[in-house]
Amino acid sequence: MQLKPGVFRLDRCRQCGHVFQNPRLSAEGLQYYYRDFYDGMNFSKMQKGMRRKRATYRRRASALLPFTTTPVAWLDVGAAHGHFCKTARNVFPGTLFHGLDASASLAEAVVQGHVDRAFQMELPALLNSPLRATGYDVISMFHVLEHVTDPRTYLECAMELLKPGGLMVIEVPNPACPMARLLGRYWLPWLQPQHLHLAPRHNIVRLLGELGWDVLLADEGAAHDPIDVTAAVALFANQHLPVAPAPWHVAEPTRSGQLLRRAGWLVALPLLLVGHVVDKAIVGPLLRMSGQGNAIRIIARSPRRAIS
């Protein structure tokens, strides 16, 4: 998306359907590609995008209503700028929201009042931290597990941090979505090189069962984000038009190239609008009804007593 240098390969296990980046980036490599994506040069743009997703955040929070009405404390893993927590307060007004993220932008979420407490670290580090809370009623991980090198460890950590009988809600991309095959490399949820793992629903459910979770909901329709066609048009245009100025480009973009890029986006604008209508009116409803959306939502309950 930023047109930083690099080519990335995804392999799919023929037996179970798990999709994984191969070879996988090192921690230093990941840091290079994360840099200026959520923070730095892209901070303002990312803030605007997250503010526009209030309806999505409200649906995510409301998905817990059939299972709990009064969570005392909620930990949002991958909280970024805290916009989900800000919106979720309207659904659960009496809940304390804590945010966890490796990004420095989380500090601003505390200043803005989006979260009550912030942990700038990875989830496994919280287990051994003196800042660790006594236990959470809910832990959310919205589009987090696909980013981490070891999703199993994150699920184990969540169980340790939850109160007995506490709830976990996760959302991850659905690699079995028909749009993934149709759009190929221009399907946004591939999001290379950030997404290291894309697991089908049955793999996640099986793993949760092995770890002792009680799976209450596993759905591939309700969490669908109607953006596939629009994003594919944008990704295609972004890749094929002259690059915008950025410090990671070897050659300085020319003035004629920048004029051509602006003209190209003007040409692409009607296609983006058509894509938006198609996503909202046709593709989105069809995928939700068929249960083949671009995201998987799973709600699970931790054991009410310790597993021996």
Rank of each mutant, 00 (worst) to 15 (best):
S105P: 00
L106R: 10
A107I: 01
E108M: 06
V110N: 05
G113N: 04
V115R: 10
V115E: 03
V115F: 08
R117H: 14
A118T: 08
F119C: 08
F119E: 05
Q120F: 01
P124C: 05
L127R: 14
S129E: 09
T134L: 10
Y136T: 00
V138G: 00
V138L: 05
V138M: 02
S140W: 10
S140E: 08
F142D: 05
H143G: 09
H147F: 12
H147I: 02
V148K: 09
V148Q: 06
T149H: 13
D150S: 13
R152V: 15
R152D: 11
Y154C: 01
C157W: 08
A158C: 15
M159G: 02
L161F: 13
K163T: 07
P164N: 11
P164K: 13
G166N: 02
L167I: 13
V169H: 04
V169A: 14
I170K: 03
E171P: 03
P173Y: 02
P173I: 02
P178W: 00
A180M: 12
R181T: 14
L182N: 07
Y186W: 15
W187E: 01
W190V: 04
Q192N: 07
Q194P: 02
L198N: 01
A199K: 01
P200S: 11
P200E: 01
P200I: 04
V205I: 09
V205K: 05
R206A: 15
R206C: 02
G209L: 07
W213I: 03
L216P: 11
L216Q: 13
D219K: 13
E220A: 12
E220M: 04
G221S: 08
A223R: 00
P226S: 06
I227C: 14
A232T: 07
A232M: 10
A232F: 09
V233G: 11
V233C: 11
A234R: 15
F236W: 15
A237T: 14
N238W: 08
H240E: 06
P242L: 10
A244D: 13
A244L: 15
A244M: 12
P245Q: 03
